[in-house]
Computed example of a mutant assay.
Amino acid sequence: MLKLLIIIPAYNEASNIERVVDNLIENYSQYDYVIVNDGSSDDTRKICANRKYNFLDLPINVGLAGAIRAGIRYANYHGYDYAVQIDGDGQHEPKYIKDMLEKMETAQADIVIGSRFKEEKKPNSMRMLGSRIISGAIKLTTGGKKIEDVTSGMRLFNKRMIKNFGYNMHYSPEPDTIAYLLNCGIKIEEIQVEMYERIAGTSYLNLKNSVWYMLKMLFSILIFQWVRGREVK
């Protein structure tokens, strides 16, 4: 059987991590998992150790990109065929992993994104306005390829992408990377999923920086990606 690893980056997720991992153990034991404790300052590490969860313990906070890269390298080292990223706050439903795998196979995709907006309309809000603008920028710079949920943290990678994200390229889990990968010839698809709001804990995304984030993404998508070397193999 093909092997799949669930990667769970966790920064100060003491309020959520047991709920997320116990659900995987009880209901999705066909998949392996690894928690990447990203230098948390709360009891995330203690909970993982006491509950004997499978986890990597990063000694300092390296950020979401670094935490995912650590998980991806773990997947590569242990020979996994697929790796799927889900958040440690419980907003992602593991039941959709099966559908994501089926989409990857039928579409021969390299990456499948669990999307809130593949079939559902985006709500009217400032945050969704930013999402629409970034989606438009990706479409403009990739020959018309539209990604509806550009900030989704639920992503499935095939073996080729595991190798690339782990060792061959600098990967950040951001919309500009999606645009870059599409222009490298990587096939990215979306499927509709349902996501939940964070119940507790600390989000990687600071809302105070949302405007700066959008401007940075637009600069990278519209300008920087064209001078970036094509590292994907």
Rank of each mutant, 00 (worst) to 15 (best):
M126I: 15
M154D: 05
K121I: 13
N158V: 08
K146L: 12
Q91E: 11
I111G: 00
H92L: 11
R127Q: 13
L101P: 12
A107Y: 12
K95D: 11
T141W: 04
T106M: 09
I134P: 01
R155N: 10
E120N: 13
S152Y: 02
K122F: 06
K121N: 12
F157N: 08
V84M: 01
F165I: 15
G166N: 06
I97K: 00
D149H: 07
D149R: 02
V112F: 09
R132Y: 04
F165R: 06
K163C: 10
Y96T: 11
N158T: 08
A137P: 07
L140S: 11
L129P: 02
R127N: 11
K139L: 08
K95R: 13
S131C: 07
K139P: 05
V150F: 09
K163Q: 15
E93Y: 15
Q91S: 15
D99L: 12
D99K: 14
M100P: 05
I134Q: 01
D149M: 03
K95W: 03
R116K: 10
L140I: 09
K145R: 14
M161D: 03
K103I: 10
L156S: 01
L129T: 15
A109R: 10
R132K: 11
V84L: 02
T141G: 05
K121M: 13
Y96P: 08
S135I: 01
K122T: 08
L140Y: 13
L101S: 11
